[in-house]
Write a protein that binds this DNA or RNA. Structure first.
Lengths: 212, 212
DNA sequence: CAATAATTTGGACAACCGTCAAGACGGCTG
DNA sequence: CAGCCGTCTTGACGGTTGTCCAAATTATTG
């Protein structure tokens, strides 16, 4: 069979190709991380490839070499960032031994990310809105949304479990609630509203016992 | 006094000026409405003044004559549209004589606007995201957000009243919940998900009794 | 080491952007 | 009718955009 005849040669060829692919992909992520810096600062509408390149250690040609398109680059950026995002609360969820412990751990992380990663979060909301106009974004955005919903659901079910209860609403409604609150708090925070973060924490603290 | 000496002349001058102002403002709204057509189609990032003009009966110079700026135009657009938005459910709220009547009236309007005015709604979400980057948008966006929150609150309190109860959560949380659900449904609807609208209606129908 | 492929560079391109200004148009007033 | 004023048109401006490409550089292979 051809399969066996070319076996060894094919194997090394395939290995070489996957190696190149991995290297290629690692570079893509490196570039995406550099691009996120500028995207988070200016937003999708105001960011050009040249501006991204100028604020990074790369030239604008490299971006075109690794990404077919501006949309391709930005999709890669958000995918990469949100992959880290969805694990943010996992440690708290698995280690918390009581409702209070879970609540406080969750709120601490929530406040920290809202304050320290505001630029990344606003970029996410920017792109989710862009997805309503640009079909090329939709698949990725819907997928990320699903994984964020699952993230919230993990917290809620664990919280309920620690009280020997079950969540009172659907995953979708729960995610909508938290996402809506977070989005509003983010906007207020960016508008220099000092009460944005504490208000969010109060609201969530009050809400948690009522939904589970 | 100068006030009395120039009384009559001043009065007609002021009248003429307010008349001109009104005419000026009416024209602004006329232009804003034309601009909304293109903005709703392309979104903020992809829309230029020239494109707006080309898709309308006006030349691009007129827009510069009536608006100091691209931001000025877009602020006017959204202000104008959302002014109509916040009264959407008022008739239902005031005429409904039972919980069921309010629920069904609300859901009908909700489904209708989601399907028929999807382009306007996505523009709103687009601009709210832009406000996280562009300080010039923040004042208007926060104001509109407040009035939408009040709109939802009017529905919730009336719904509670019809059951001799009081809303169980804060205006902010309630708005966050509905806004989050609507935003998610809008994205799915735009992505041709046929279940987006019915899922939203089911969710809201289930939610209403639990929050009041 | 030579040669072949992959990567990177930086400039050229046409298209487009927001802004501006000079002038045309038309109605109103004196 | 002459002159003014608000309104509108049109074209031009400097700057920026995404894209492409030929050449230079670096890595990999035979």
């Amino acid at each position: 069979m051809a399969r066996q005849a070319t076996g060894a040669a094919q194997r090394v060829a395939v290995a070489a190709e996957t190696l190149r692919d991995e290297k290629f992909n690692a570079r893509r992520i490196e570039l995406a991380e550099a691009a996120l810096e500028t995207l988070g600062e200016l937003g999708f509408a105001r960011t050009s490839l040249r501006e991204i390149a100028q604020n990074s250690a790369f030239t604008h040609g490299v971006f075109h070499y690794y990404f077919s398109d501006k949309l391709d680059l930005i999709c890669c950026c958000v995918r990469h960032y949100k992959a880290k995002c969805v694990t943010r609360y996992d440690e708290v969820v698995t280690t918390a031994r009581s409702r209070d412990e879970l609540t406080e751990g969750f709120l601490a992380k929530l406040a920290a990310t809202l304050e320290n990663e505001a630029r990344m979060h606003r970029l996410w909301y920017d792109l989710r809105s862009q997805a309503m106009f640009e079909p090329a974004f939709r698949k990725d955005v819907l997928e990320i949304d699903k994984s964020l919903e699952a993230m919230i659901w993990r917290i809620a079910t664990r919280y309920a479990e620690l009280g020997n209860k079950r969540p009172a609403s659907s995953p979708a409604a729960l995610y909508a609630l938290f996402d809506g609150l977070f989005q509003s708090a983010l906007l207020r925070h960016l508008a220099d509203d000092r009460k944005a973060v504490p208000d969010l924490l109060d609201e969530v603290r009050r809400l948690l016992p009522t939904i589970c």
